[in-house]
Nucleic acid binder design. Structure first.
Length: 426
DNA sequence: TCTGGGGTCCTAGGACCC
DNA sequence: TCTGGGGTCCTAGGACCC
């Protein structure tokens, strides 16, 4: 059996942890640039605040109802996420935890006796909440997909489940699937949901009975087949190896305000390249290719409409690299190629791909052996920046003015990662 | 005036190989 | 006029996830 542990309204819960006065009050957290709502508490949900909707569209409700609003504080969320995941690893063993996202983990509970699953899940929930202060919900089922279904239902107040649901009999699975509409299933997005509805398939129970061959044709090949199998209680989405590394690394952001100057774009691209390079080195990899893109508002004249258009340029390296200076060196000319004067730029990004472990970089006849010195330099810079939790050392190309930096006007303090922002008790 | 920032997997099709 | 039967690797694009 597999479990899915999910932190309730994770970002909001993190904010509440250091603001106990907000325990009963609705809370929302905004995306970078204070653009969209990316986390909301149940209270905010009940007021009709929509998830992933632009902040300004919800502003009326928010102001009228005294909703607490925060800019996202990723230092804080990242640190608390680590505490939650460490707790889970401690409870069920490192090898049985697959961190799926910042606020979710799958657990492999196959070593727990069936009759003890419910008690075990309850215990995991209690201890995690006690140790971290973050509320979690747990769904347990034969496979990952059904554990997602169970998790989702365990959160509904009217189920009386108090955050733990175990689907261990055919009857329970049937009941759960009948209550779950197709668009709430993991792996069914907008396209597939509307296709299914057009065939009269509205909930998980109906979907479970479709032939695998139909799913293969209509729901993305083997992906669809897996979906049906999982619904039938056949676990076929395996747990991931925790040592796996990313195959692509991206750093992209909207600008705090639209930008027109090449220089601003170059600063941003150099900054994103530096950040991407850090992520690359953290997983001990080097990249073979860099891609730079910019997003403009494709709309001309007309009244305002959000109509983003992106353009890409890429370069490949003679030899895989994780050296920030070299990545910037290749990235800037790409930015210049993309730039046209007089156009309004909304966003830029850097994507690294063709990632290989950095100890297996192919030597190249035409490039000398400066590798070790560079590597030592990069390690030193990373260590200093990490120990200070800030970019103390950065490349000049990343700029000083930083006109394009994102807005975070309502960010809470970085209570757990900065000495000068520690939580104060009077 | 204002709409996030990451990722994954899969398939089809082209270029190339023997 | 005839025109196989395997492969591999790469890329673009679609769909999905949180």
């Amino acid at each position: 059996m597999k479990a899915l542990v999910d932190c309730n309204s994770f970002y909001c819960s993190c904010e509440r942890l250091y603001r106990p006065d907000l325990a009963e009050q609705p809370v929302v957290v905004l995306s970078n640039n204070d653009g969209c709502i990316i986390s909301r508490t149940d209270e905010a949900k009940k007021l009709g605040v929509r998830m992933a909707a632009p902040y300004y569209q919800n502003r009326d409700i928010i102001e009228k109802n005294n909703v607490a609003v925060f800019s996202s504080n990723y230092n804080l969320y990242g640190d608390l996420s680590m505490r939650v995941m460490d707790t889970l690893r401690c409870l069920v063993g490192e090898e049985n935890v697959e961190v799926y996202s910042v606020d979710e983990s799958f657990l492999d509970l196959s070593r727990i006796l069936p009759e003890k699953l419910y008690a075990a899940a309850k215990k995991i929930k209690e201890i995690t909440e006690q140790w971290t202060g973050i509320k979690v919900s747990i769904g347990v089922a034969p496979g990952k997909l059904l554990s997602k279904v169970a998790n989702r239902l365990s959160k509904k107040d009217n189920e009386g489940t108090k955050g733990v649901m175990v689907l261990d009999t055919p009857e329970k699975i049937r009941e759960a699937l009948e209550k779950t509409s197709v668009d709430d299933l993991w792996g069914v997005g907008r396209q597939y949901a509307s296709k299914l509805r057009s065939y009269g398939i509205n909930n998980g129970w109906q979907l479970k009975h479709l032939p695998e061959e139909w799913a293969r044709k209509n729901l993305g090949g083997v992906v669809g087949v897996r979906l049906i199998k999982e619904l039938n209680g056949i676990s076929c989405i395996p747990m991931k190896d925790p040592l796996e590394v990313k195959k692509m690394i991206a750093t992209t952001r909207m600008f705090g305000k639209p930008v027109f100057e090449l220089n601003d774009i170059k600063e941003a691209v150099a900054t994103y390249a530096s950040r991407a390079a850090e992520k690359l080195r953290r997983q001990y990899c080097a990249a073979k290719m860099i891609q730079v893109f910019v997003v403009t508002n494709g709309n001309r004249n007309e009244k305002y409409e959000y109509n983003p258009q992106s353009r890409y340029q890429y370069a490949t390296f003679p030899k895989a690299t994780a050296d920030t200076a070299q990545l910037i060196h290749y990235a800037l000319p790409l930015a210049e190629k993309l730039y046209q004067p007089g156009i309004k730029y909304l966003k830029a990004g850097v994507i690294l791909s063709g990632l290989v472990p950095d100890n297996s970089i192919q030597a190249n006849l035409f490039f000398g052996e400066t590798k070790n010195r560079k590597k030592f330099l990069m390690e030193t810079v990373d260590n200093i920046n990490f120990s200070q939790r800030d970019d103390v050392i950065k490349y000049a190309a990343t700029g000083l003015k930083r006109n394009w930096k994102m807005r975070q006007e309502m960010r809470s303090k970085r209570f757990t990662t900065r000495w000068d922002e520690l939580y104060e008790i009077r």
